[in-house]
Write a protein that binds this DNA or RNA. Structure first.
Lengths: 206, 206
DNA sequence: AAATGGCGTTGACATTTGTCACGCTTTTTG
DNA sequence: CAAAAAGCGTGACAAATGTCAACGCCATTT
């Protein structure tokens, strides 16, 4: 059998991927979609390339078409802590910097070579004002982000290291399989050695 | 000297308190404010009274004029965990239940006798649609909630118990002084004994 | 006045988790 | 291809935190 789907995917542009994604959320006319497309730009990132340095202001809206990103921050002792990951069909951003146009305390970098679609803040805000579906979509996205934050906070204050690990693996299998383990540990707030030992206990039990 | 301010405060209705609060966020005409007021209801809660039981759907918007609330959830082992507190001039809600109209996994109860202003979901949504300022305000509130969630997540994954305690005390002094310590421990994700020992270490150092 | 229950504290101890050091394998890079 | 870096695991030990039980304080109730 020939990999027909792969041939199709190879012919899909980045924006086709995004268009399919967006239509799952809201209804958008072809004219509106054309406007959204015209305002967008595509960009490639190589592995380890940074897309936000702390101190800079986050002034774009960024959709990940392929690859993987990490948003992290340094604490006073110089260690870094992973606030969030982003994989295909996710968004990555620093909302606080974007909303208040203030220097970010975070860093965002590609964990693999990646491709993204970006809109400048000016253009995205214009799209939000002129296309109701974009505004509605953006609100849904923010609401969902808040909800997942609440769930993560509950997990962090109520679960053991092992429970947090299992929950993350179960809830975000795609992310789990895309990022190095020591970053998972950083995301869960535990040391990489502890995570390694949790895994060992599990393989022993099975 | 006579407590002039207290006399004034006694004459302020609950809604006056809210009106002052809202005008700090957005510009609202007197006519609009009258609509917001007409749609609202005032309610008193006694100590320990519940305002949301898990399994119920959260169908109101609720502003705290006086008193103190706690939003918490039980984990599998039967212990409870504090997701959030609410004090004067804060909102308390379960956004996830509200947005999706699904049974809540949380409980909300008054920690002291309290007074609140509430709007039914129907009326609040109507206000959001008819009064732009309400919509804008609501978006700002959600954005701020998301930002504070991010900050709390960073604190939970990067700070020690002592650091979390100090940060909470510093960031939310009013809340800190309004709630029992074992609930602060529950909010920070540490045991009440650990919190007690952290405090002891501090009094010894001073 | 006695009883009660919530709240905070404390000691003793167990458990979890972190830290440091090292080595091995894989991946990346020049 | 070879060198360098990243990634993962593990042993030994230290530190942080949790658990259990008991106690005292204090406000409220009876």
């Amino acid at each position: 059998m020939f990999p027909v789907q792969s041939i199709w995917l190879a012919l899909l542009t980045m924006f086709d991927v995004f268009e399919k994604y967006l239509r799952q959320w809201v209804s958008v006319s072809d004219e509106e979609m054309a406007l959204i497309r015209a305002a967008s730009m595509e960009r490639k990132l190589r592995k380890w390339q940074s897309i936000l340095h702390e101190g800079e202001v986050w002034k774009i809206t960024c959709f990940i078409t392929t690859g993987c990103f990490r948003l992290y921050r340094f604490s006073a002792d110089g260690t870094d802590h992973t606030l969030r990951f982003g994989v295909e069909n996710w968004w990555i951003s620093d909302q606080e910097s974007y909303n208040h146009e203030k220097p970010s305390e975070y860093n965002i970098e590609a964990l693999t070579s990646s491709t993204v679609i970006i809109w400048t803040k000016e253009k995205w805000e214009e799209l939000r004002e002129t296309i109701p579906a974009v505004k509605i979509f953006n609100e849904k996205l923010l609401a969902r982000g808040y909800e997942t934050s609440q769930q993560r906070i509950f997990s962090l204050i109520s679960n053991s290291a092992e429970e947090k690990y299992l929950e993350f693996q179960k809830t975000y299998p795609k992310v789990f399989n895309s990022v190095p383990l020591h970053m998972v540990a950083s995301y869960l707030g535990i040391s990489r050695e502890t995570l390694s030992r949790i895994r060992k206990d599990f393989t022993r039990r099975d």
